[in-house]
């Protein structure tokens, strides 16, 4: 069941991205930035966690989850240390996506040659 909903919800989020790109003529970079900000707002309103409960990876794999986990890390730290925690806790939960991108980026640059 969760597999089905992961597929559907993930697909719908990508369709929204496609509409932003085709209908509103946003570049991919603008689309992704919009999505991350939107994910952060949704988590601020407490709406993103229910979506993760419902769709699993359908909600955690799209880039919106990046905004969600940034807010999440910040809020968790803020509960312990107050406002300064907002600054220090930001990457607590998100780090894996960025560190994985950096590590595999460098490894990729070592392994592969640019094409054409």
């Amino acid at each position: 069941m969760i597999f089905f909903w992961a597929f559907v919800v993930g697909g719908i989020i990508c369709v929204i991205g496609q509409i932003l790109m085709d209908v509103f003529k946003l570049t991919p970079a603008h689309t992704l930035t919009t999505f991350v900000v939107f994910g952060a707002i949704l988590d601020g309103l407490g709406l993103y966690e229910p979506l993760i409960d419902f769709a699993g990876a359908g909600a955690t794999v799209p880039i919106t989850s990046f905004g969600n986990s940034l807010v999440h890390g910040a809020m968790a730290e803020a509960e312990e240390h107050g406002l300064i925690g907002v600054v220090t806790g930001m990457f607590e939960v998100t780090s894996s996506g960025i560190s994985a991108a950096i590590i595999f980026g460098v490894i990729g640059a070592l392994l592969f040659k640019p094409k054409g």
Binding site: M1, I2, W5, E49, P50, L51, D53, F54
Partner: peptide
């Protein structure tokens, strides 16, 4: 049931 998972928390 899966459809109720929105209200899981």
């Amino acid at each position: 049931p899966h459809m109720k998972r929105f209200k899981l928390a």
